[in-house]
Simulated scan of single mutants.
Amino acid sequence: SDGGGGAAVAVQSAEGSPWDDGFVPSALGTREHWDAVCERELLTWIYRKNLVWRIRWMWKHKISLEASVLDIGTGNAVFLVELGKVGFPNIIGIDSSPPAIQLSGSIIEKGLSNIRLKVEDFLNPSTKLSGFHICIDKGTSDAISLNPDNAAEKRQYGRSLSRVLRVKGFFLITSCNWTKEGLLNEFSEGSEFFKELPTPTFIFGGRSGNSVAALVFQKTH
C-alpha cells in the first residue's frame, strides 16, 4: 500500500529480470524516444511558423479575399481554419485518406461554411478541381518523392498541379526533403519562381543552412 499518499507504485520486473532495482525498462530512457520527441516538436514548430508565414505572404501581396484556395493534403485542416477566419469564401481541402478528412471535419469550427473537405487523390483529381488562384502543399509532394519507384507519380503530380491551378495563380510549397534548388528544378516548368519564404536555419561547421524549404511559384502558362 502507498499509505494513501497517492505516490506512484513502481512496476515490478518479472522474476529473473536483470533489472534488480525493481523497475522495468522504458522507452522514456532511450535516445531514440527523445530523438523522436524532438523531431515531432520541431515539425510542429515548423508547421505553425510556416502557417504564419504563408498567411503573411498572402496579406503582403494583397491576395484578394475572393481568391479560391486548394489545400493539397489538408491533414488536420488547421491552415484552412485560419484562412476561414480571415474570410476567404472558397476554400477546399483535399486528402486521399478518408480518416484524415473525417478528422479535419471534426476540427473545423461551426460557422466556417466557407471550408469544404473532399476525399481526393491529387494524382487523379476530379474534373471539379480546377481554376484555383492558390494551391498549397505542406508535404504531399514530399510523400510522393520519398517513394523510390515514383518517377511516374512525380510527373503526374506536376500535371495535376497544372490542371487545377489557373494561369497567374500561385503555388506555395513547403518541403523537408527538397532544397530550394531541388524545388526550382522540379516545378519551374510552366511556372516561375516568385518568392522564398522564411524557414528555420542551422549552423554547422561555421556554415549556415536551412532544414526546410518554402517557395512560391506563379503559373505562367
Rank of each mutant, 00 (worst) to 15 (best):
S17V: 07
R116S: 14
N185Y: 01
V216Q: 01
I55A: 06
E32K: 09
S191C: 14
S191I: 00
S175E: 06
G22K: 11
G206F: 13
D137L: 02
I91S: 05
S141K: 00
P200Q: 04
S141L: 03
D20G: 09
T140D: 00
S68E: 10
I107L: 13
T174C: 12
M58W: 01
S130W: 03
S104C: 02
L103W: 04
N147D: 15
S162Q: 14
P198R: 09
S130A: 10
L103M: 08
L172C: 10
N147G: 10
H33V: 00
W57Y: 15
Q102P: 00
F122N: 07
I72G: 02
I72C: 03
I134R: 04
G209N: 11
N185M: 04
C38M: 06
E186W: 06
L184T: 00
L65A: 10
R159T: 14
R48F: 09
G3T: 06
V216P: 00
H133Q: 07
A152T: 08
F170A: 07
G131S: 11
N177T: 15
N177H: 08
L215I: 08
L161F: 11
T30R: 12
E153Q: 13
E15R: 12
E109Q: 13
L65C: 10
F122Q: 09
S17N: 11
L43D: 01
T220S: 12
F79V: 01
W57S: 02
S13R: 10
K219N: 09
W53P: 00
S191Y: 12
L123W: 09
V69M: 09
W178T: 00
G209S: 15
L161W: 13
A67L: 08
C176V: 12
V212S: 04
D137W: 02
